[in-house]
Amino acid sequence: MKAILLPVLIFLVLGAAMGALLAVASRVFAVKKDERAEEILACLPGANCGGCGFTGCAAFAKAVSDGEASPTGCSVGGAEAAEKIGAIMGVEVGGMVKMRAQVMCSGTSEFARKKYIYEGVPDCVAASKIGGSDKLCPNGCIGLGTCVAACPADAIKVEMGVAAVDYTKCIGCGVCTNACPRGIIQLVPFDAKHWVGCKSEDSGKKVRQYCDVGCIACKLCAKNCPEKAISIENHLAVIDYSKCTGCDVCVSKCPRKIIWSGEQQGKLGLVIARIPEDALKEVE
């Protein structure tokens, strides 16, 4: 009998002692938690995409409650989440625009010329280490899908050698903009009506040598824009999305046919990328 009772007794005492130790410790070493962090966490989408620059939604919520991050930092939650977080933090949150990712390159395999045939690891970062990738254009999409792998929403596909974002799936987190070694993916307002499908900052002469659909900085779009929404910066047309009214003038004036236009489709107001078919034929 003693052989059984003694171990049971010892373990009861040992267990109770350990339990008591932890119970006391949890009181003595209690750390005050910011309740706002948990409230903020409840407002966030919980995708843990990392687009805000923090390791996850919990880390972002903590940073906001500590005053280290802006309540508008979550691009996925958008205006709705920002407003709720602002209410918790007691600050006014200005209008926040829903964003989407846009690949600023039109140089599909038929338009952009290559300098060699790349047969290495299928990864843009690896390819960009070898003579700056196989594309002659130093700002063209490498098309090996580093952004595809990085996208938490499975919204990017590589088509004809250029990455394309599916706007119905894009959550606007911005992870791809950091993943792209060329930095040619940008966040644009979700309802941006026109955008320039090129990121080349070389002179027109050079661009003509390596791509049929690169911006040559001819300034035709800037001169003809009735809203003065387009400017030329570093040999590249840049659209001010807040001024753009979507009048399509630049689309028709661009000799390289690289100003793209989005159209609202259906009640969802989704923007579907479209390039005029006749424009493509002209380039060919």
Partner: peptide, 10 residues
């Protein structure tokens, strides 16, 4: 567990 609590506080 105990060490974790201790570290978190101190």
């Amino acid at each position: 567990q105990f060490i974790e609590m201790f570290l978190r506080k101190n």
